[in-house]
């Protein structure tokens, strides 16, 4: 067995070039587990930039995986506009009641100063701390919610779907405001030391909206937004299906796509070709229930389907590993990833 010669970051870049790296990059999206490392409640943990950075470094030490995430929680984007966030002891904080109640509120929206809004500034501080500690060695990923998907938190899902189908010009205004925010927020994270941006866009999945509607809305918005982000971007549909829209998603400018556990990874990989690297698609909910042996088997099967030829990163299907996934299972994922994910991938896997 030869020892690894590529750094974590170089190994990852090679797979993004659709070449076989030395090993399958392991992207554990552990946005909450840092709190466990520090013995803190989630609310207390997210309130301190130094704790988030320290938690990520502790997770890095524990699992030796290929990503650090300074991101706190998606609902920070509505908190930045004065919205409530509901904290729970065992899961990601979620947006409280919608901050917008209709077109009047949309017309009155102002831009957010991403540098000087406390809940966002904390993420930038964490990012800087991580960049100081591990920049250039490990991928530091910044996260944004897409302009098209953010209104689910801002308006509530039902009201947003009604707006989408109403033809009201308030939709265009909302997209314009959200797009400016998204670009500013992504670029601020890159400037703080993130190497790449994960553009979360669950609504741009055919699980949520018909392809024809997405061709008029979500996809052109993604193209225009990603074009103004000053760094590489991946697009994640957070468990939504990608297969019916791979050709469209490949034109958004994203280099990588997150894949749903509901889809066959081999089929998605074949459809993406060398246009998009694929990230996925371990079932995070299943990881919260299964034994370490079950996790190993899931990893083996995922690598078998996704890894040959490169262009693949092992991760969960949602972009956030549930807090309930145990250390024992995460260790099994890491060990199996290392064992089965060495290139060339075994043919008998």
């Amino acid at each position: 067995m030869t020892s690894a010669t590529l750094s974590s970051l170089d190994n990852l870049l090679r797979t993004l070039e659709h070449r076989e790296p030395e090993r399958v990059p392991l992207i554990l999206m552990l946005t909450m587990h840092g709190a466990k490392e520090l013995g803190m409640e989630l609310r207390e943990y997210y309130a301190r930039a130094d704790c988030v950075a320290e938690g990520q470094l502790a997770l890095q030490e524990r699992y030796r995986h290929d990503v650090a995430v300074a991101f706190g929680y998606a609902a920070a984007e509505v908190e930045a506009r004065g919205g409530d966030v509901v904290f729970r002891p065992n899961g990601p904080p979620v947006a409280g009641r919608p901050i917008l109640s209709g077109p009047e509120d949309i017309r009155a929206m102002a831009q957010v100063d991403v540098q000087n809004t406390p809940c966002l500034a904390r993420v930038l501080d964490s990012t800087r701390m991580l960049a100081d500690a591990i920049g250039g060695q490990i991928l530091i990923v910044g996260i944004v919610v897409s302009p098209f998907s953010a209104p689910v938190m801002q308006l509530g899902f039902e009201a947003y779907l009604d707006l989408l189908h109403s033809g009201d010009p308030a939709f265009d205004r909302l997209m314009e405001i959200n797009q400016r925010f998204c670009i500013d927020w992504a670029n601020a994270q890159l400037a703080a030391g993130a190497n790449a941006i994960c553009y979360f866009d669950p609504l741009s999945s055919t699980t949520m909206l018909p392809l024809e509607k997405l061709r008029d809305t979500g996809f052109p918005i993604a193209r225009a937004t990603i074009a103004e982000i000053n760094g590489p971007a991946g697009i994640h549909l957070a468990s939504g299906r990608v297969l019916p829209s791979v050709d469209d998603l490949a034109t958004t400018g994203a280099a990588m796509i997150g894949v749903s556990a509901l889809e066959d990874l081999s089929e998605v990989k074949a459809a993406c070709g060398d246009r998009l690297a694929v990230l996925g698609n371990l079932n995070g909910i299943e990881l919260a229930r299964c034994s370490p042996e079950g996790a190993r088997e899931m990893v083996r099967e995922t690598i078998r389907k996704g890894a040959p030829g490169g262009g693949f990163l092992l991760s969960d299907n949602h972009g956030e590993i549930p807090y309930q996934v145990s250390d024992e299972v995460l260790r099994a994922v890491v060990e199996a990833g290392r064992e089965y994910g060495r290139y060339p991938i075994r043919e008998d896997l």
Partner: peptide
């Protein structure tokens, strides 16, 4: 089966 979108079920 993935043939229609959730928005269509909703509407």
């Amino acid at each position: 089966e993935g043939g229609v979108a959730l928005s269509q079920v909703y509407m």
